[in-house]
């Protein structure tokens, strides 16, 4: 079985701060991590590899430093890694990104047919959830997003059955390989690789690909290939006032009483809801 997992290196959003003076993002010391959602997909891919054998290739498009995320993915158990990096890719939006990644997946497919592509549900920086569907559409693969569970895979009939989260319930879908899957967060938890995985991650040479390796149409990547334009980036306006503090002498019960009085007098409509 040949599985490709698309991962993206992102800044750890929990650690991003806005510079208090200049109002710009302070990246200093902000660690880059594998997009957390991608790990659920990677783990699922590794489980399929455990069951059916074969290869798990991790693929990322990004700057050279994204190598770290590929090595990390290998330390969990991925067998191969491709780093798609080129200045020409800079500024790609999701449409252009899915084009470039699809080009790379096609090349991998030529080397050994790809049965499944996994993407993360979404990224924590772009947060668009578009690249996966973009790849599926371009590759003409079945698109299975928000998968909570892979119920069954049959390599002979090339059928796959999954549970897909939808609004208000779970769809059980029967589909066919090749398919593009995005896993729901919490659907599994990442394993701790073995010492052998660590050695492989440290030693395996990466495949370093650029636009000439696999991309046919240069006009479809980078800024040129991106229909969307970021016209403004700004810091959310802080609420003008801070919370009004409820103060009362006499401990918790006095504070509670004061709070309730405040709610009832300030928001008379709310009172009805509260003591229905």
């Amino acid at each position: 079985m040949h599985i490709v997992v698309c991962i993206k290196q992102v800044p750890d959003s929990a650690q991003i701060r806005i510079h208090p003076v200049t109002n710009t993002i302070m990246r200093q010391g902000v660690p880059a991590i594998i997009n957390p959602y991608d790990l659920f997909s990677l783990e699922e891919a590794l489980r399929l590899k455990d069951r059916f054998g074969g290869r798990v290739t991790v693929l990322t498009m990004g700057p050279p430093m994204a190598e770290a995320s590929l090595r990390k993915a290998m330390s969990f158990g991925a067998t191969d890694a491709v780093l798609l990096t080129d200045r020409k890719f800079a500024g790609s939006d999701t449409l252009a990104t899915s084009y470039a990644l699809t080009s790379a997946i096609r090349k991998l497919h030529e080397e050994e047919p790809v049965d499944l592509v996994f993407c993360g549900k979404q990224t924590i920086d772009g947060d668009t959830a578009q690249v996966g569907p973009g790849i599926a559409t371009r590759m003409n693969m079945q698109q299975l997003t928000y998968v909570a569970k892979i119920e069954d895979v049959n390599l002979d009939s090339r059928e796959i059955t999954v549970q897909r989260r939808s609004e208000g319930g779970v769809q059980v879908l029967k589909s066919r390989l090749p398919a593009m899957i995005t896993m729901l967060e919490g659907s599994n938890s990442m394993r701790f690789g073995t010492m052998d995985d660590m050695f492989r991650a440290a030693r395996t040479p990466l495949k370093l690909w650029n636009k000439d390796t696999c991309v046919d149409d240069e006009a479809k990547v980078g800024l040129k290939g991106s229909p969307t334009v970021v016209s403004k980036v700004f810091v959310p306006k802080p609420r003008a006032e801070k919370a009004k503090m409820i103060e009362a002498e006499g401990g918790a019960s006095a504070q509670a009483a004061a709070a309730i009085d405040m709610l009832f007098t300030t928001y008379p409509k709310l009172a009805n809801d509260l003591v229905r």
């Binding site: 701790f192 690789g193 073995t194 010492m195 052998d196 660590m198």
Partner: peptide, 9 residues
């Protein structure tokens, strides 16, 4: 010995 499986070096 390390905390990983097959952790002896």
């Amino acid at each position: 010995r390390t905390d990983r499986e097959n952790g002896e070096v």
